[in-house]
Simulated scan of single mutants.
Amino acid sequence: MDVTSPFLFLGRSPVKTTSLNQTHRDMNAKMVDFGGWDMPLHYGSQLDEHHQVRSDAGMFDVSHMLAVDIKGEVARAFFRRLIANNVDKLTQPGKALYTCMLNPRGGVIDDLIIYFLTESHFRMVVNAGTADKDMAWMLAQRDQLAPGLEIVPRRDLAMIAVQGPNGRAKVWQVIAGAQAATENLKLFQAVTYDKYFIARTGYTGEDGFEIMLPANDAAGFWHALHAAGVAPAGLGARDTLRLEAGMNLYGQDMDETTSPLESGLTWTVDLKSDRDFIGKQALLEMPVKQQLIGLILLERGVLRSHQKVATRYDGDEGTGEITSGGFSPTLNQSIALARLPLSVSPGDEVQVSVRDKMLRAKAVKYPFVRNGKSLV
């Protein structure tokens, strides 16, 4: 499909498509509606795709996420006010910063990555489901804080994540000359090479690259990666991989009603400097009563989001809820992230309501898996 036509009509509702939509269909992907986007769930076996990423290399179409270029002399000053993490950590071109954008109440509007390119050019990547909301919020803040600043959505770019222990080497097979430019790239750094913006970032707990390139070139690049032995992977494997890696999913583990301080994201919030960002005062005044902690199910069953969790404490202070849960293919057991009282510590046993039964689970420190190895 022409990349200038972002909708595929399925039934009555228009569904957005990436430039790789026909490529996924040609590879017999199981397609699903994901937040209004027609995306691949799997290409035959979600389990095989998961293990392929952990053991070798897999690739994900993440073009539904939105890259946004921020241009202007006041770009850094704009981010000092807009985001919870400190943009002044970004001093080296290509360096990336993970952060949250908060509302005045301290709730999470979105979690995102910002890349520093030059003092007058930053690039950010926001979630697909929040892209329209994020753009509206940023434009409104721009009008108040930095009139004249350019905020440019880049739907002309495709994004492909290549993840796994052999992912970088297989990218080097496909992009001639890229090894010299990216071999010494550190984690959370990016570089522009030819038509590619190559970042050593990811959402799987494995090494690899997230690569932006012109949308019209995405299909050819995808097929070249496949020929080099990179397996296509869908949303199903992406979710089990990120859960094992203990990585938050917006809309489940945090949203506009939850604080980053109770969502395992305190490390992304700068409360030490004098900088005043949107939501800072609310965070300073907000009592922190809960935490995000890992769970491993000790009995047969599957942990799912919204299941209630009971601790050894009575009353409301002894209850919590699973935010993300599922079966871990690497550990071969069910795991979860849960928002529980601060009184719960790793090693404690809790009970989870699963289909009207109370099943035993153990609290653990996450991540559960990194670089193919169990950490619990």
Rank of each mutant, 00 (worst) to 15 (best):
E262F: 06
T192M: 06
A336W: 11
D110K: 00
L284Q: 13
Q22L: 13
Y313L: 15
A84S: 14
G35K: 00
G167R: 03
A96K: 02
V62Y: 03
E119N: 15
L265K: 01
A169D: 15
T266N: 00
D110N: 06
K373H: 09
M124Y: 09
S5K: 08
S263M: 07
T268E: 05
N332M: 14
L249W: 08
V352K: 02
D348A: 11
V288A: 09
L213N: 11
R312V: 15
I114V: 15
T17V: 15
N103A: 10
A219T: 13
R200A: 15
E262I: 06
G236S: 13
A158N: 01
H50I: 05
A180N: 14
K272Q: 13
N371W: 06
L10M: 10
G294Q: 10
K30G: 09
G325F: 02
S259D: 09
A140K: 14
F78Q: 06
P147V: 04
A84R: 02
T4F: 10
T311L: 11
Q163A: 10
P93N: 10
A57L: 14
S343H: 12
D274P: 09
E299W: 10
T130W: 00
E210I: 04
E256F: 03
L265H: 05
S55Q: 15
Y43A: 07
L213F: 04
Q189M: 11
T311M: 03
A140R: 12
G44M: 11
A84N: 01
A237R: 03
P6Q: 01
V15W: 03
F79H: 03
A282R: 08
F188L: 12
F209A: 10
G246T: 11
L284K: 11
G301S: 14
M39W: 13
Q46C: 04
E73S: 14
Q307H: 13
V309R: 04
G177R: 14
V171Y: 08
T330Q: 15
L249K: 02
P104K: 01
R200C: 12
A363H: 09
A84H: 03
R154V: 13
L283Q: 02
G320P: 03
A77V: 10
T201F: 00
V108N: 05
P153S: 05
L47Y: 09
G229T: 07
G177K: 13
G107I: 04
N21H: 09
D274H: 14
D143M: 09
P93R: 06
L249P: 07
G236W: 01
L235Y: 08
L261E: 08
P93V: 11
D270M: 14
L187Y: 15
M31H: 07
Q173K: 08
V354G: 04
M358N: 05
R105C: 03
Q163N: 13
M212K: 07
I278T: 13
A363N: 11
H121F: 15
S63Q: 00
R81M: 13
L97I: 06
V269E: 04
L331T: 09
T323M: 09
T258F: 11
A57T: 12
V53Q: 02
L185D: 09
T91D: 01
F60S: 01
A180Q: 15
V87M: 06
S305E: 13
Y43R: 05
A245I: 04
P153Y: 04
S19K: 03
F209N: 10
R355N: 10
